[in-house]
Design a protein around this nucleic acid. Structure first.
Lengths: 170, 170
DNA sequence: CAATAATTTCAATAAAAAATGAAGTCCGGA
DNA sequence: TCCGGACTTCATTTTTTATTGAAATTATTG
């Protein structure tokens, strides 16, 4: 084993720079939009402007968040491809870098939130069509019209998604 | 005043039909996506399939939600244009109908959530550019590259929005 | 204009979501 | 194989958000 670098307080706990603060706030706001918790925005924001890979405990101490939040946040970000683990020689810890391709958030959102909900909505619509079968003709007509509207809208959304994705990715 | 129709329990508190339940669950899920609370989804779902305008207390008793939730939910829905008040002769209460144009939710979301956040993000980016001024040339270069990425992405989003809106609305 | 129904508001409460940190697991190296 | 740091998990706590319902406000009508 090489020299133990003693405690090496390094920059652990160092104050956040103004740049970091701006980036972090920006990502907190954006990721909140797609339902991600503050801590995830903080982590991504910090890594986004970081000039070099950061280890989990650096993330923790810079942001003053707990071990659990750091671990779970990084896990989620890795899961959507927004953060990558990199190897740093001579250090046992994993180090993380932000993937700068912002569209990863959009694609993850579409894949994990939008798509499943659309599927379930279509199921419900099918069920509604069945249920409208035993209605008075008059009621049935009105109901079918509404259901048609719903379907139409969902289809429109579904058609738009691939287009949006193509536009966002690269 | 005409004959007082006595208590007229009418259909107040009547069980929800299966059709209503499907519609309600569908809208709970969808509206949650854009950050609206469950009660709002319930109200809109109920009104969406209702064959006639409903008064606030009907909404309350059918859904078993409180006076406050009904009032606030209807207010919000009226605010985004998703629900209209209609006049019902001989009844003092307001009656509400769902506007079937689903795109109202999308446009409200874009106008009230997305747009403001984009504006604020652009301000932050400007601030970040200023801050990067006093950095070492090397750091500055790396930072500016990242900022460019952000800008590029925001612009892309901004360009896409009108298109999406045009597509969704009618 | 009094009486009362309909609705809004908002402080208090409940419910849901996120953060914490201790206990447990998983390595990698000696 | 045993040790110790790095990380993960998850029951508990904290924070945030939504709901409730009583009081205040605003009609409506007789």
């Amino acid at each position: 084993m090489l020299e133990k670098p003693i405690t090496l307080p390094e920059e652990a706990g160092k104050e956040l720079s103004e740049l970091e603060i701006e980036a972090i706030q920006m990502f907190i706001n954006f990721l909140k939009l797609i339902g991600l918790p503050k801590s995830v925005g903080e982590i991504y924001g910090l890594l986004f402007v970081a000039p070099k890979p950061l280890a989990m405990d650096e993330v923790m101490s810079r942001l003053n968040i707990s071990l659990g939040a750091a671990s779970q946040g990084l896990k989620l970000l890795r899961g959507v491809g927004a953060v990558k683990a990199t190897y740093v020689p001579g250090d046992r810890r994993d180090h993380y870098v932000a993937d700068l391709e912002l569209s990863r958030f959009a694609t993850a959102f579409i894949k994990e939130e939008l798509h499943p909900r659309m599927e379930r909505a279509l199921e419900r619509i099918r069920r509604m069509e069945q249920l409208s079968a035993d209605m008075t003709p008059e009621q049935r007509k009105a109901t079918m019209m509404k259901i048609e509207r719903l379907k139409h809208w969902l289809e429109k959304g579904n058609k738009m998604l691939p287009w949006i994705l193509k536009f966002l990715v690269r």
